[in-house]
Simulated scan of single mutants.
Amino acid sequence: MINKWQDIVKQKMRSTGETQETLAEKLDVTQSGVAHWLSGRRKPDTDIIASIMKAVGIKEITINDDGSASENSIQCDRNTNNFYIEVLDVKAGAGDGYLNSDVQEVIKLIEYDNEQAKLLFNGISSNNLKVINISGDSMQGTFESGDAVYVDISRRSFEGDGIYVFTFGRNLYVKRLQIIKDKLIVISDNKAYKEWDIREDEIDQLYIHGKVMLSQSMLLRKHG
């Protein structure tokens, strides 16, 4: 029998006495919504699965080649005086959107000296920062495909013009968002791509995962 992510979550809930009702309260959703997710009748997005795992005390889940799942965690000797950011195995589409898997896997940690981190991240907690990679060229000039972006995941609503990581429909994007009159406009920095808008009747398809704070180029350039 395949051990799915739902099975691991339910096993953890049994061991801790967690119920669907208490989990729903933590996630600020309905009990029936939790029941649908855990039964597999509805497929939550990656951010919801991560929230479920965090709420029940699971560090992360690895999905194996045979479809089975196992709980695991990154093992490393951490210097308590340093600042660590998780790099997720997730790509955000700077183009037509990149469809990701259902589970966010932490593939490595980036370590900073605490003083350096204060200067770079303006006091943001390491728990609220994640690193993901860019796929596509629609943000060319600002990001290149393969660049890493540092995302403040505490900013999960529109907070003025800026670059956001967001899901619309089933696709994950990194784009500029700007409000013009009563429309939310999605803007690509590469002018070869047309801007598009999210109408009021489509806003329920939008989920903002965070706001981009910094980026790091991954390009290799040959010189001579």
Rank of each mutant, 00 (worst) to 15 (best):
M1D: 11
I2E: 10
K12G: 01
M13I: 09
S15L: 13
T16Q: 09
G17C: 07
T19N: 05
E21F: 08
T22Y: 03
S32K: 10
G33A: 11
V34Y: 04
A35R: 10
H36I: 05
W37N: 01
G40L: 10
D45K: 05
D45T: 00
D45G: 06
I48P: 00
I49A: 05
I52H: 06
I52W: 06
K54C: 00
K59T: 11
E60V: 01
I61S: 00
G67Y: 08
S68T: 14
N72P: 03
C76F: 15
T80A: 15
N81I: 03
F83E: 04
V87D: 00
L88G: 01
A92W: 01
A94W: 05
G97R: 07
Y98Q: 09
Y98A: 11
L99E: 14
D102M: 14
E105H: 11
V106K: 15
K108N: 11
I110H: 07
I110W: 09
E111V: 08
Y112C: 03
E115I: 14
E115W: 05
A117P: 02
A117S: 13
L120H: 05
N122F: 09
S125V: 03
N127S: 15
N133P: 03
I134P: 05
D137P: 02
G141V: 09
T142Y: 15
F143E: 02
F143V: 05
D147M: 07
Y150K: 02
V151M: 04
I153Q: 01
S154H: 07
I163C: 08
Y164S: 00
G169Q: 06
G169I: 04
L172K: 01
Y173M: 09
V174H: 00
R176D: 00
I179G: 03
I179C: 10
I179R: 15
I179P: 03
K183M: 14
S188L: 07
D189W: 01
K191Q: 12
K194F: 06
D197F: 14
R199N: 14
R199I: 06
E200A: 12
D201V: 08
I203M: 11
G210A: 01
K211F: 00
L214E: 12
S215H: 12
S215P: 01
S217M: 04
M218K: 13
M218N: 15
H223F: 12
G224T: 07
